[in-house]
Design a protein around this nucleic acid. Sequence first.
DNA 1: GATGAATGAGGGTTCATTCAT
DNA 2: TATGAATGAACCCTCATTCAT
Lengths: 202, 202, 202, 202
Amino acid sequence: MNIHLLLIIMARIVDTEKIERLKIATMKLVVEHGYGGASAVLIAKEAKVASGYFYLHYKGKYEMVNRLLHDVYQEVINKLYELIDQGSGFNEIIDNLIKYFFTLASKEPIKLKFLYVLTNDYSFKIEEDVKAAIYETIKKIKQIGLNSNDLDPRLSIDDMYLMLVINSIQYINQRFKNNQEHINFSNEDQIHLLYLIHKILK
Amino acid sequence: MNIHLLLIIMARIVDTEKIERLKIATMKLVVEHGYGGASAVLIAKEAKVASGYFYLHYKGKYEMVNRLLHDVYQEVINKLYELIDQGSGFNEIIDNLIKYFFTLASKEPIKLKFLYVLTNDYSFKIEEDVKAAIYETIKKIKQIGLNSNDLDPRLSIDDMYLMLVINSIQYINQRFKNNQEHINFSNEDQIHLLYLIHKILK
Amino acid sequence: MNIHLLLIIMARIVDTEKIERLKIATMKLVVEHGYGGASAVLIAKEAKVASGYFYLHYKGKYEMVNRLLHDVYQEVINKLYELIDQGSGFNEIIDNLIKYFFTLASKEPIKLKFLYVLTNDYSFKIEEDVKAAIYETIKKIKQIGLNSNDLDPRLSIDDMYLMLVINSIQYINQRFKNNQEHINFSNEDQIHLLYLIHKILK
Amino acid sequence: MNIHLLLIIMARIVDTEKIERLKIATMKLVVEHGYGGASAVLIAKEAKVASGYFYLHYKGKYEMVNRLLHDVYQEVINKLYELIDQGSGFNEIIDNLIKYFFTLASKEPIKLKFLYVLTNDYSFKIEEDVKAAIYETIKKIKQIGLNSNDLDPRLSIDDMYLMLVINSIQYINQRFKNNQEHINFSNEDQIHLLYLIHKILK
DNA sequence: GATGAATGAGGGTTCATTCAT
DNA sequence: TATGAATGAACCCTCATTCAT
């Protein structure tokens, strides 16, 4: 491999790192100061990137935050698809989903905080296709639950979304808020949330 | 009654109305554009009040929104105290609390939206005394539930807060978001939410 | 007259002065640095006014410059109307118009320079009603000239506009450019321009 | 001829084309958006050239536009020299000059628009040598006119420059502005302008 | 008390220019 | 030589806040 190619590859690594730093800085500042309080200049400074760099990759602040929000949602959706495709039973799917949220809470807490902050924002409506994808997966899970008689048939898809996704995010962020400093989620937290959710679902 | 006294009383009436208009305008604009997007001048204009008037009564925008948030919380706390003081049973308290939220959703939807938008904001931490008051009331309700054997003893106060308050707010705003236009909450919505909550609690 | 009223009147005087300073500063900087080079902050600084003040009275830089341009055009149009309404003969109208331009060149040279700079800008198309007003007045002058046999019938309205307005502006600015410093237009300059114009027109 | 030499020649061909594309793109964008609105990156993009390439050949945007302006002026000067050197009579020189402007208006309208936009810009003063060259040629033409008794002796060199050059540019751009779309100059336009100019000159 | 004109710091964004490749 | 990603100063504009009235 010649040196030219190597340099190009290095350049790409740097580039990817910059974008990544920008994304993390954006999530951090949106969480800390809200969407309005997270200024492009501050985000760039936090990411150790020139302010103009921001605008090479995103049309503007709104687009950046919006895309980021949908990226994080997409990760959740992908996880849901993955769980369904594994052919697991209803309870296993639920367990794994909650487990996933707790892993996220430990490994990338900022993402869960970011979701938490923006899901309640009336200015950031989730795009229709993302919404549709979430509903589709939950519908499938619902069907699996109904078939195996593990799911209360009175629950709507909205209810399941509220319990599985929103409630989990709220539950975890409740703990984030109670513990200012770094938080280590115990296994008990996870078991307790699962207990609550299973209680509702069956 | 002399005319001088009358004018003072009228002035006070006008004044109360102005403050009230300011509060409503603030909630409206914070809900519509987020905290950062709600400018003091626009709020004043919406309230048909001079922008300087805003600063006669509030130190700044943050203080205004913060106080408003706690006012709304206080209303919920007051309702909780009222329900406990009536000496009702556990289930009755829960039913009445949910009923209260649905009444609020019909009569003053802006308050529920305002709560929804700001409860997830990491910049608006609820002050300790408000938090303590909420926990105190929930603790009392918990005790009532435990005494009458109507409450799952495994639920913590945090869990109850999550289910009774946060979850209700989320449930109602989920419907606000689904229905852009004015929404009339049916009795069924309320019954369904109660069904979910009772399921968790017992 | 009470002091309150007096203060209001004084406030208005100050205000008018600020707007006037802003207008003059805008013309000055547009002339010196072009439209693009005349920044709002620089204009405000030159006018000894806060930069935000600019935007209290104008929607933006473009609107400010555009309105200013049309104001100056309007002054010319008003002069043309005035000259026509006086019922003077053709030659007298022409003489007075040129005299007017030279007075402007002495009293408010910045306006003539401003016109000079922007008339050739493809981004500042004169609005249709202003254009129509100019053409209407020139049409009337043309008719007066044809009636009195003082005007070459082969000249179109465009030609007359070119000679009377554009050419005068160019002629005067040619002298501005030749003389960096303050310039005192001699009577001979005016007579000479009139000589050229009359030659074309008859 | 070896292949190495061929590649160098090809490179030069490409290079000349690139520079040419840059020049045309610059004129286009300066005309459309003004000097301030014509960004270097956009110019490069329009010319299908890397933005860095721009700075290999020009010190900056100002230098580029300035040099371009003088290039176009130089073309006019060259034409004037050519006409004088052909030993033609006064009227013939004038006719051919106007004819030249109209050919330019048809073949390379962008150049005439570019001249139009920048001649009235106080930031782009023509350099002394270019100015001197123009004056020298016009002086010669003046002499020819005086000798053949075809020129009004009262006209100064400034007057002749105003009529022959500035006025022609204004006349033609007046038509460009009236006709948004592509414009075909009729022979009559040319004859009419000549009529006006001859009228002034004699 | 009540007003709203005025301020200027700071917002989002662009762009002339550089430089590592 | 030629590229275009990256920079950061400076752009236009907004807005929380003040204060003369």
